[in-house]
Design a binder for these strands. Structure first.
Lengths: 303, 303
DNA sequence: CCTGGTTACGCCGCACGTAAGAATC
DNA sequence: GATTCTTACGTGCGGCGTAACCAGG
């Protein structure tokens, strides 16, 4: 009867994918259903939108005219969902997500707690798999989206960096290293350290880097292990030891001169992950909500 | 399941009208159905959109956030329909329109022919009524829209001038009147006239004006009656007589100096009509098509 | 014949109307 | 108690999947 977004979305996907059957696959519905919705649009407008021939489809003049409106309507829905995702506290839903090993083990568990507090009615089920498997299951619509540690490329996949920062070596202003313009890793590890606890993402990144440089993490002189970044900063400030934290988390203290960032000559402690999901499908609002959560919170506070 | 335009439209109408029941009336559906769709939206977003109290409704923060998106989506649909209306040749549908007496008798019959040629599958049924009755039936959703001769005001009604021009007295360059800076009506009607045939809108407007000034139309010295404006212009150009036509239709001949427009001191031959339709309801695409037809063609060629 | 779009048919769910209920002033 | 929104229930239409059919290379 009346124009609806669903049909415009299907029409757009058909044009985008270049065939009815490819669109059906992308939208995970059957190909006859796609035919039906496009026909229904054509009836609505009283004009053909696509020329079909067995080997390819072609837009009619009317189809060309409609295409930008279809695109706009999809865009509008996405924007609406995104804008509304900050109000979805009572949202019910089930979210299927895939995570690569490290993220699934060290990162996600710490994010799911706070997320669950805010959105108690969204059930999340997480599957830990390798990146290739995650992509496969997203393409099959078995997962809503995935979180992976390395950028991936796929024509049907949207990728967005969720966190992308670097741990910096910090020392109290009074520390011998604080005046140095550059320090090597081997030199730094001779000093006493204050670190986040075992099992934290921050600690993990650090230990991986040390291992990559043939340094046994257990050889570190760890004088204190603390459960939050804030506690670590306070301990460093008080002169207990040096540490590794996100640069952004000590901006304030650095500005006040309480803590110095000591440039490392020979090592980078990078920590990054990316969300990936299908371009063609509209994400369920619960997924949009989770993405907004990832985007807008300072995730580092929990890692 | 997924966000759809229909629900946004209903939500917007509820806010616009200030109550569920008023919205139901405007959308001509039952009030429980409105409740259901708004609730469905609230479920979708996992948040209340409206605070209900028996005497008035109030937007929540989330509702306020959603409102502009709802408005945009309605706008987008309207634009899409309007843009597509030039491709709707095969459109099937039935169009119910109301026309005031003069329009129904003299104007519309001449428009419906050409329209029917272009859109053979749109069935039009026209009801001739007075303006008040037309407005009433539009509000009741018994008519899709109306065409009336005078501007009307109603908070729920959209009004758009469809034609709004003035007939001018024209004379060949060689005519005695052609040099005059101003002429009175009584003076003008002494000269021989070339006119459109009886029953044409142009002729009607002229005769009405004459009657309003106590001049019997039959007292005119009509030397020729022709079936099209083009023929009238040619005859005037050839010196057969003087006439009344739309200023815009003789622009070309005036610029070339073949025909002169002679200002009338004491009369105006205005011809105007307006389309009116509900603001709240989305017009069926067949109605949009008809409106586009009215807007884009030079209607004067048939009147 | 094989790939890809259309037609046919049956089922399920959603949207709606009717009617009754609840809440607020 | 009147007005307005909500809940309950039954119905009908629309969207989709399955399966059979058709058209072009």
């Amino acid at each position: 009867m009346a124009l609806n977004f669903h049909q415009l979305h299907i029409f757009y996907t058909v044009v985008d994918k270049g065939s009815f059957s490819a669109a059906a696959q992308a939208l995970h519905m059957t190909q006859p259903a796609v035919t039906m919705q496009v026909q229904s649009l054509e009836d609505y407008f009283g004009t053909k939108l696509l020329h079909r021939s067995t080997k390819r489809i072609e837009l009619t003049e009317a189809g060309r005219a409609l295409l930008p409106y279809a695109r706009q309507s999809i865009e509008l829905i996405r924007e609406t969902d995104a804008a509304m995702s900050r109000f979805t506290r009572q949202l019910k839903g089930r979210l299927q997500l895939g995570a690569s090993l490290t993220i699934g083990e060290y990162i996600l568990p710490r994010l799911l707690g706070p997320f669950g507090k805010e959105y108690p009615h969204i059930a999340i089920s997480m599957k830990v798999m390798n990146t290739a498997q995650i992509m496969e299951e997203i393409l099959n619509h078995q997962l809503n989206f995935g979180l992976v540690e390395a950028p991936v490329q796929h024509p049907d996949m949207h990728m967005e960096p969720v966190m992308n920062d670097e741990l910096k070596l910090i020392a109290p202003a009074s520390h011998p290293l604080a005046q140095r313009s550059e320090v090597t890793l081997t030199e730094a590890i001779r000093y006493p350290f204050v670190l986040r606890e075992q099992g934290s993402g921050t600690r993990l990144v650090m230990e991986e880097q040390l291992k990559a440089r043939q340094i046994d993490p257990r050889s570190l002189n760890i004088v204190m292990e603390l459960g939050s970044t804030g506690a670590v900063k306070s301990a460093v400030e008080a002169g207990v030891g040096i540490s590794f934290v996100s640069a952004s988390s000590v901006k304030h203290e650095v500005a006040l001169g309480l803590i110095k960032i000591v440039p490392l000559a020979d090592a980078e402690f990078k920590r990054e992950f990316y969300s990936i999901y299908l371009k063609s499908a509209l994400l369920p609002i619960s997924a949009v909500t989770f993405l907004t959560f990832l985007r807008e919170r300072d995730l580092r506070q929990w890692l």
